[in-house]
Design a binder for these strands. Structure first.
Length: 692
RNA sequence: GCCACCGUAGCUCAGUGGUAGAGCACACCCUUGGUAAGGGUGAGGUCACGGGUUCAAGUCCCGUCGGUGGCUCCA
């Protein structure tokens, strides 16, 4: 006879099998009404799931006991809403086949195969939503029933949905001993879907929902397989939560680096220049230059040497490195000189011949470099190296070009030309651990200086079945071990992900999310035994023998483009003073104070600060508004009173009032100190009492 | 690359087959005003590009380019 332990420790005994729904009712009518599902021994279930033995039970309601939104409740609501949407779509679009409809972060989707010629469009959302509202209003019970596998498959085959048959077969393969369906109402009478559940008790529990967008997807994620239409929606327990969610999305959009990039004049992309090619405008270039200075100083401290290399290299270089054979699809096509090309044309050489002969090495051309490592390797190889010279650390802000698929390109986060804060360390095997530590130190320094704490660490390993990797498996094993060991010393949790390695070696990646929740890899550290081997790199050891160095590739920002794209969103465009494109704007109250304002501007510029003056004919209110829109950290308002007392009236971004006056020299000194110290000190401390 | 949606002034957007619009920005004039926009006047358009349907196309159809959201890919 089941004994039920509730989260607060209270016990309830029943002398027959019992459902969570009944237990909820026994506790109180309010809970019975609010309950959406249950957790039985930690497993999410329906409210109707029979309990036959002693269990720990938690009832799930829209809000937790602390009053926060319950994620599992949202999971149930959204999964259930996906069913309601599927029913509505099947009703409105006869002949559609359902594929797969799970809840996801922020909502749910359903992958649907529409019959030829009839696709859904977002203009159909309103009428789909109408049908969904009707189904929800009818408050039909989600009724679960099960069939043995063979019988269930029989039923699906009779219905003829290849996608559902496939789902069932996969479930059986994964060890299910029965197949389950959920009817939205009475089985046999109402709509139903093969589904493992769980669901909310009835459609009426879906408080608020909205269809969001359409996308296409591939069946099983395979681009050679069927193309499906993915309909995205979201659902919440009530209208208020939905409204808040939509407001949050709108808020997030304001932080979008593409929008801010235009508003703040940071960068532009011109279609005549090309997709995915960033034009850094003066303001964006200032931010980037500050970051490069920051990293350069640290490189010097850590014993790196900076180098410069060209943007192209001969194809043969990349045959040796393996980029050309292994990475060809992501490269711009090789550059072949006019004469060679003319000769080939005269011979009647076809495009496929040309490609083959380039692959074979019969024709050489130049490649726009997809990575910096081969050039740096050649710098290493240009001198004889002793074990005493190691590690050799070569750094370069190196620009690389990659042929990304057109549909993937967007903003600054996925581009076709970008500059890595790259470096390659050539070291002895016994130096790997220490060198990786040094790299991790830089990454951590960057994140902490910029106040970025919301990142995750991924150790990318090779996919055991993958064919895209170069090199000896034994080398791979050693390199993977080195990465694991290094990641473990970080003091942050990390995940190991097979298939995420580079083609030449495993890596430690730092991954952050953008405003719409997409993950981007920023910094990366890679241990590589393969390229030194392919290029025959050597050093002379203490034993007077030739040895092979190990290479570490590292880029703590990843690429300047992507990093700054993410950084714009991180700061919502309001850069701290040391990074801000314009650090101070001097605002004379009227022409009468222009001369004093010019003096202040000159003093600021003299200290290397990025400052401007707004001596236009606007009133001060207008000047302040314009400057605030540009998110300039400090405004120096000067009028006759300030000129009289040699002071500056300060206003800071985000603090919407005059902070008060400070002396001319103090102001300049404080800002310079704050800028040079990268935010370690703040002018605002002068106004502590009023600033907060 | 695939699917859906979108492309009108520098920017944000209105314009459902019949003479291209607004706000901001810009130029000029007035205003010299103490902390989130004082007032006036003016200039600014191959309605992404190319074809088609129509008496007539920003508007409807096809294609191309570009953007957005996903999918696939990703060093």
């Amino acid at each position: 006879m089941p004994q039920i332990t509730l989260p607060d420790g209270t016990l309830r005994d029943y002398d027959e099998p019992v459902s969570p729904a009944r237990i909820a009712a026994d506790i109180g009518p309010g809970l019975a009404k609010a309950a959406l599902g249950a957790r039985i021994n930690g497993v999410l279930t329906d409210l109707s799931t029979p309990i036959e033995s002693d269990v720990e039970l938690a009832l799930i309601t829209a809000k937790t006991r602390e009053g926060t939104v319950d994620d599992e409740a949202l999971f149930l609501l959204r999964h259930s809403c996906a069913h309601v949407m599927a029913e509505a779509i099947e009703e409105l679009f006869p002949g559609t086949q359902l594929v797969y409809g799970p809840p996801v972060d922020n909502g749910f989707y359903y992958d649907i195969a529409f019959p030829d010629g009839s696709a859904v469009s977002s203009e159909d959302f309103a009428r789909i939503e109408e049908v969904m509202k009707r189904i929800i209003k009818e408050d039909r019970t989600f009724t679960r029933y099960e069939l043995p596998c063979s019988e269930g498959l029989e039923k699906l085959r009779a219905e003829g949905s290849k996608y559902k048959i496939d789902n069932a077969e996969r479930a059986i393969e994964a060890g299910s001993d029965a197949l389950s369906w959920y009817a939205t109402g009475e089985p046999g009478t109402h709509w139903e879907d093969l589904c493992r559940g769980p669901h909310v008790p009835s459609t009426g529990k879906i408080g608020a929902f909205k269809l969001m967008s359409l996308a296409s997807s591939y069946w099983h994620g395979d681009e050679n397989s069927d193309r499906l239409t993915r309909v995205y929606g979201t659902a919440f327990a009530d209208k208020k939560q939905l409204k808040q969610h939509l407001a949050r999305l709108e808020e997030a959009q304001k932080r979008d680096h593409r929008i801010l990039g235009r508003q703040l004049q940071l960068f532009t992309i011109d279609e005549q220049v090309g997709q995915g090619l960033i034009l850094w405008k003066p303001a964006g270039a200032a931010v980037r230059q500050e970051l490069q200075n920051f990293i350069s100083e640290e490189l010097t401290r850590q014993g790196y040497a900076q180098v410069f290399t060209p943007h192209i290299g001969k194809l043969d270089l990349y045959r040796t490195s393996g980029h050309y054979p292994y990475y060809q699809e992501s490269q711009y096509t090789p550059i072949i000189d006019r004469e060679t090309l003319g000769g080939l044309a005269a011979e009647g050489c076809s495009c496929s011949d040309l490609a083959n002969r380039m692959d074979e090495g019969e024709i050489d051309g130049y490649l726009l470099k997809p990575m910096n490592c081969p050039h740096h390797i050649k710098i290493y190889a240009s001198e004889q190296r002793s074990y005493r010279d190691l590690p050799v650390r070569l750094a370069e802000f190196g620009t690389v070009y990659r042929w990304e698929q057109s549909g993937e390109i967007g903003g600054m986060t996925r581009v076709r030309g970008f500059t890595q804060d790259d470096a390659h360390l050539f070291c002895r095997e016994d130096q790997i651990a220490e060198e990786v530590q040094g790299c991790l130190h830089i990454v951590k320094l960057i994140f902490s200086t910029l106040g970025m704490s919301d990142y995750r660490v991924r150790v990318g390993l090779r996919d055991p079945d993958g064919a895209k990797y170069v090199g000896d498996p034994a080398n791979w094993d050693r390199a993977e071990d080195a990465c694991r060991t290094a990641a473990a010393t970080l003091g942050v949790p990390f995940t190991e992900e097979p298939g995420e390695a580079a083609f030449y070696g495993p890596k430690i990646d730092f991954v952050v999310k953008d405003v719409i929740g997409r993950e981007w890899q920023l910094g990366t550290i890679q241990v590589d035994y393969n390229l030194p081997e392919r290029f025959g790199l050597e050093y002379i050891g203490a034993d007077n023998q030739r040895h092979r160095p190990v290479m570490i590739h590292r880029a703590p920002f990843g690429s300047m483009e992507r990093f700054i794209g993410v950084l714009i969103e991180h700061f919502a465009g309001a850069f701290p003073c040391w990074l801000a494109p314009e650090q101070v704007r001097v605002l004379p109250i009227s022409e009468k104070s222009n001369e004093y304002a010019e003096e202040l501007l000159a003093a600021l510029l003299d200290r290397g600060l990025r400052a401007t003056i707004d001596d236009g004919s606007d009133r001060i209110q207008g000047k302040v508004k314009v400057a605030a829109d540009l998110k300039i950290p400090y405004l120096a308002v000067v009028g006759p009173r300030d000129a009289e007392s040699r002071s500056v009236s300060v206003r800071a971004f985000g603090i919407d009032r005059n902070l008060g006056a400070v002396g001319f020299d103090e102001f300049v000194d404080d800002i310079a100190r704050e800028s040079n110290g990268r935010g370690e000190t703040s002018l605002l401390t002068r106004f502590e009492e009023t600033a907060s």
